[in-house]
């Protein structure tokens, strides 16, 4: 089932779809538009709308604007908004689920290739260190589309990186490794083997 596209402002069909189909969507009803979330966001200035306004746009039935918004992609999962939200709206989950909906409904085509490259970088970090190192993952992802493009992206997102460092979502220096990387590799190999047996894609 696809989300309905409202024909007029504040038609609630899209909002109601979000309430029912998005993780934490019911809780969204309680948002009182205080702005604590958008104010808490380390990269709030980078977002076109920020979660607070995005939620109002959901109510207003602005489906396309919501699903093409960069807000749903830019969440760094710091959870500052979630802990501060006076109405206990699970903002992070909602944004993540909305980005999934955006892909599902084809609003995020342009991002798809990007996502695949990002996933590859993520996987690399996970298997090599047993952790995701935000700095290295990002760097590997940026440079996956060529050296020049990588530098450009890196420079453009400097502010975000700094904010992430500040909110402890990224650290500088050597990547932390989990204990027993060897065992991890064995586990990953086993997982790959099981997946192959079930004939699923990687």
């Amino acid at each position: 089932m696809t989300a309905p596209t409202p024909s007029r402002t504040y038609d609630l069909s899209f909002a109601r779809y979000v309430y029912d189909h998005i993780d934490g969507g019911q809780r969204l009803k309680l948002c009182m538009q205080c702005g604590a979330c958008s104010g808490s966001c380390p990269i709030g200035t980078q977002m076109d709308h920020g979660p607070r306004k995005l939620f109002m746009m959901i109510r207003a039935g602005m489906k396309e604007a919501v699903l093409t918004s960069n807000t749903i992609w830019n969440c760094v999962s710091c959870y500052n908004c979630v802990v501060r939200c006076p109405r206990q709206v699970p903002i992070t989950y909602i944004l993540h689920d909305l980005s999934a909906l955006a892909i599902e409904e084809g609003y995020a085509e342009a991002k798809k290739a990007d996502n695949a490259r990002f996933a590859k970088a993520f996987w690399w970090s996970a298997t090599v260190f047993g952790r995701t190192d935000e700095r290295l993952v990002t760097a590997r992802y940026y440079f996956s589309s060529g050296l020049g493009e990588g530098i450009k992206k890196g420079m453009a997102n400097q502010a975000i990186a700094l904010a992430m460092v500040k909110t402890k979502r990224m650290h500088l220096g050597m990547p932390h490794k989990v204990k027993g990387v060897g065992e991890l590799k064995a586990i990953v190999a086993k997982a790959a083997e099981i997946q192959a047996r079930h004939g699923k894609e990687g």
């Binding site: 538009q33 205080c34 702005g35 604590a36 979330c37 958008s38 104010g39 808490s40 709030g44 920020g50 607070r52 306004k53 500052n80 908004c81 501060r84 006076p86």
Partner: peptide, 22 residues
Amino acid sequence: KSKPARIEPGADGRPVVCGENT
């Protein structure tokens, strides 16, 4: 109209109120 998200110490020691003007 804003619920401030946080208060930070400013460079000059003054408290800095941070948030989003809704």
